[in-house]
């Protein structure tokens, strides 16, 4: 399932989206695509070339973008709506809430350029709270693919799913983690690595960092489980509870604020089902800034090293509770 080797291929999740969209367009005649003057960046431009009659550039007008998608869904279409995550979820929040989520319409909001890895454009363009915004909406599902392979499967699953879905994609090329045999099931977290010394629940590009962290910890004799939580809502509560119970030490990792995203979702489950020490790796209460993606990941504490530190801290807390 996992791709190995030190020379891992890198592909941006948005690139994979552009490719799968064309395939899905062939499979689903009712699939239409809407963009807001960013089709070259979100990669919907390829679909526009192949299916010009089913592509609508709505210009720099995100409220109408979402509302028009709602209308298309009401008339039996499956709209995939793309723009940058910060504009999709922030600029058109009320339209998503009232025109799409409330009536549970079959609209797929597939947003690119999420998180701080947008890079040089800076805080205005870096969506760090999009998962929280979408997760809090009734009827809305939230998926964050970890790599290009998963993106293709996740987008296909989102299109097949009945109801609104938010899919979060990124700008820079990221390592391809999974082979073609990788199985994606909507709502089912994937245990990528077993272990009983701690568990890391990661999502999006932090899955790769979590795997690196677990590898280094293993070299020191610590067996840490890694779970890819690609579907943040509905959350795979069973898997979270099982591994939290097994390890008693939980770390979450996301390229997103620690308020309302994966860390919060896991904390809610732990609090209600099986209280256990938790450390959240994510963006603390601050906006992003300009810089290169890898510089920003370091500056904001989102690297494998940061995850390793979090694992060590949470293990200490657990041991303290156990009186060790």
């Amino acid at each position: 399932m996992l791709e190995s080797g030190s020379r891992q291929r890198k592909v941006a999740t948005r690139e994979a989206y552009g490719q799968v969209l064309v395939e899905l367009g062939k499979r689903y005649p009712e699939l239409v695509v809407l963009d807001a003057d960013l089709s070259k960046s979100t990669k919907t431009a390829e679909f526009a070339k192949v299916f010009p009659d089913r592509f609508f550039n709505m210009g720099i007008a995100e409220q109408n973008l979402m509302g028009t998608a709602a209308g298309l869904a009401l008339a039996g279409k499956i709209p995939c709506v793309s723009t940058f995550a910060v504009f999709a979820t922030g600029r058109a929040y009320d339209q998503i809430r009232n025109s799409i989520a409330y009536p549970a319409l079959d609209v797929k909001i597939i947003a690119s350029h999420a998180g701080i890895t947008v890079g040089e454009d800076g805080a205005s363009h870096q969506a760090i709270e999009d998962i929280s915004l979408m997760r809090s909406l009734p009827n809305m599902a939230v998926i964050v693919p970890a790599d290009a392979t998963e993106t293709k499967k996740a987008v296909a699953a989102a299109v097949a799913h009945r109801g609104p879905v938010y899919v979060r994609l990124g700008r820079p090329p990221v390592p391809v983690l999974f082979g073609e045999d990788y199985k994606f099931r909507f709502g089912e977290a994937v245990v990528l690595r077993e272990g009983s010394d701690a568990v890391i629940f990661a999502t999006g590009i932090m899955v790769g960092e979590a795997l690196k962290a677990a590898e280094r910890l293993a070299a020191r004799g610590s067996q840490v489980a890694v779970v890819n939580v690609h579907t943040i809502k509905p959350l795979d509560v069973e898997t979270v509870v099982r591994l939290a119970r097994k390890t008693g030490a939980v770390v979450t990792a996301e390229e997103h604020t620690i308020y309302g995203g994966l860390g919060s979702a896991v904390a809610e489950v732990l609090g209600e089902h099986c209280p256990a020490p938790l450390v959240r790796v994510g963006i603390r209460d601050r906006f992003g800034e300009s810089g290169k993606p890898d510089e920003l990941m370091k500056a904001f504490g989102l690297t494998a090293d940061d995850i390793i530190r979090a694992v060590e801290i949470v293990q200490k807390r657990r041991d303290c509770l156990l009186g060790k």
Binding site: M66, T68, G71, A75, S99
Partner: peptide, 11 residues
Amino acid sequence: LSIGLGIALAG
């Protein structure tokens, strides 16, 4: 109006 436009485009 946006919703109406979407229905109209589907038509």
